[in-house]
């Protein structure tokens, strides 16, 4: 029972990351109808940004979060405006596929050039503090990171629901023609949306650095899981992504506990395929 609870807590903690990654991916998909194949790599960039801020400037990763978000937002907005937006006009899916996959490869290899492929970690004064609640123990940074993830998720939902820019983002994703009719600058919304997705991935990465190794390929696992979250939670659905992320985290840790860690990834992707098949059939039957 104790190990089960422990696994649930761990699953919840990691699920929060999958949620935030999926939500970022979903905001981008909702607005531009493209799948961002370098989402995981953007998380990795966030990790290195936090690492640089901590190692060279002595800024605590939690304090550096807004900085990481800002840098990622600007970089994402520039990438969108200079490369993705012009490709959207061509209506060619392969262009965008190559563009985002290529950007992912570029980022991974760029990180390798700058930082080599050595594993790096951040160890803060509070890294080793363990909280215990009865038999369950959790490292303090995990708890704090989880709380931050939840806060960011809620903030994102509020931003989309209540702010003027958030409403414009939803408007463009629901009806691009209607958005043009009411004078919304779609290119600007594209920039903001992609910047937002990049910032969310970057924040996830920065939060991960406190208990996860930093290396140039660290993002790919999260990138793939973000795709699963999007498919399971529903393309374009923010709340769907949130719950799917938590579900995926729990599934992973419970599978490791009951079936074995070596089968974890296998079961996750098998579940993904099963859900994909079921969804496809439901959609086909409806149509």
């Amino acid at each position: 029972m104790d190990t089960f609870l422990q696994a649930c807590i761990n699953g919840l903690m990691i699920g929060g990351f999958y949620s935030l990654m999926g939500m970022g991916q979903n905001v981008i998909f909702g607005v531009m109808k493209i799948i961002n194949f370098c989402h995981g790599e953007m998380l990795m960039v966030g990790m290195y940004l936090a690492y640089v801020f901590y190692t060279y400037l002595g800024i605590d990763p939690y304090v550096a979060l807004p900085l990481v978000a800002l840098v990622m937002f600007i970089a994402g907005a520039i990438f969108q405006h200079t490369l993705i937006t012009p490709s959207l006009g061509t209506k060619s899916f392969t262009n965008l596929l190559f563009l985002t996959v290529g950007m992912g490869i570029l980022l991974t290899n760029g990180a390798q050039v700058l930082f080599s492929s050595d594993y790096r970690t951040i160890t803060t004064s509070y890294s080793s503090i363990i909280l215990s609640l009865g038999p369950i123990t959790v490292a303090l940074p995990r708890v704090v990171s989880f709380c931050v993830l939840i806060a960011v998720s809620i903030a994102l939902a509020f931003f989309l629901k209540y702010t003027r820019t958030g409403k414009k983002i939803r408007a463009v994703s629901q009806n691009p023609i209607g958005a043009q009719v009411v004078g919304i600058d779609t290119k600007k919304i594209y920039m903001i949306t992609y910047g937002l997705g990049a910032a969310l991935a970057g924040v996830s990465g920065a939060l991960l650095t406190l208990f996860y190794v930093i290396n140039p390929t660290a993002g790919s696992n999260f990138g793939f899981r973000a795709l699963i979250v999007v498919v399971v939670g529903g393309l374009g659905s923010i709340s769907g992504a949130f719950f799917a992320g938590i579900f995926l985290g729990l599934l992973e840790t419970l599978v490791s506990l009951f079936i074995g860690p070596s089968l974890r990834t296998l079961v996750v992707f098998a579940t993904f395929i099963v859900i994909l098949v079921i969804r496809q059939n439901i959609i086909l039957r409806r149509a």
């Binding site: 409403k167 009806n175 958005a179």
Partner: peptide, 15 residues
């Protein structure tokens, strides 16, 4: 019409 179908009537008008 090109409305934002998943938004409320008020949100549509506000936009």
């Amino acid at each position: 019409r090109q409305l934002f179908t998943e938004m409320t009537v008020y949100e549509n008008l506000e936009l």
